[in-house]
Amino acid sequence: MSITEYFQLVVSDYTLRTITLGTAVLGAICGMLGSFAVLRKQSLLGDAISHAALPGIALAFLITGAKDTNVLLLGALVSGLIGTFWIRGMITKTHLKTDTALGLILSLFFGFGMLLLTFIQKQPNANQAGLDKYLFGQAATLVEKDVWLMTTVTGICLVVLLLFWKEFKIMLFDADFTKTLGFNIRFIDILITFFIVLAIVLGLQTVGVVLMSAMLLAPAAAARQWTNRLSIMIFLAALFGAFSGVFGTAISASQNNLSTGPVIVLVAAVFVIVSFIFSPGRGILFRQLRFRKNRRDLKLQKTLQFMHSIAVNHENIKHPHAIKILNNFQGFTRKTLQKMEEKDWITITGQQWALTSKGFHKAENLYNQQLADDRTAD
Rank of each mutant, 00 (worst) to 15 (best):
Y6I: 00
T15E: 05
T18N: 03
T20Y: 01
T20R: 04
L21K: 02
L21F: 01
L21A: 03
C30R: 04
G31H: 07
G31Y: 01
G31C: 04
S35P: 05
A37P: 04
V38I: 06
S43W: 06
L44A: 08
S50P: 00
H51K: 12
A52E: 01
A52V: 08
G56T: 08
A60Y: 01
F61A: 06
T69Q: 12
T69M: 08
L72K: 08
L74V: 10
A76S: 10
S79R: 00
R88Y: 13
L102C: 09
L106Q: 06
F109Y: 02
G111M: 09
M114L: 14
L115P: 00
L116T: 04
L117D: 04
T118W: 15
T118C: 10
I120Y: 01
I120T: 03
K122R: 10
K122C: 11
K122E: 06
L135G: 05
F136D: 07
G137N: 07
T141N: 14
L149G: 15
T152K: 04
T154G: 05
G155M: 02
L163S: 14
E167N: 15
F168S: 11
K169F: 15
M171R: 13
A175T: 11
K179Q: 08
I185C: 14
I192P: 03
F195R: 06
Q205H: 07
V209F: 05
V210F: 01
M212S: 12
A218W: 01
A222H: 03
F240I: 07
F243V: 06
G245Y: 09
G245K: 02
V246S: 08
T249G: 15
A250P: 00
A253F: 10
A268V: 00
A268L: 07
A269N: 04
G283P: 00
L285D: 07
Q288T: 10
R290A: 12
Q301H: 01
Q305Y: 06
H308Y: 11
S309I: 03
A322M: 09
K335E: 11
T336R: 15
T336W: 04
T336L: 15
D344L: 09
W345C: 07
S357D: 06
Q369Y: 07
A372G: 13
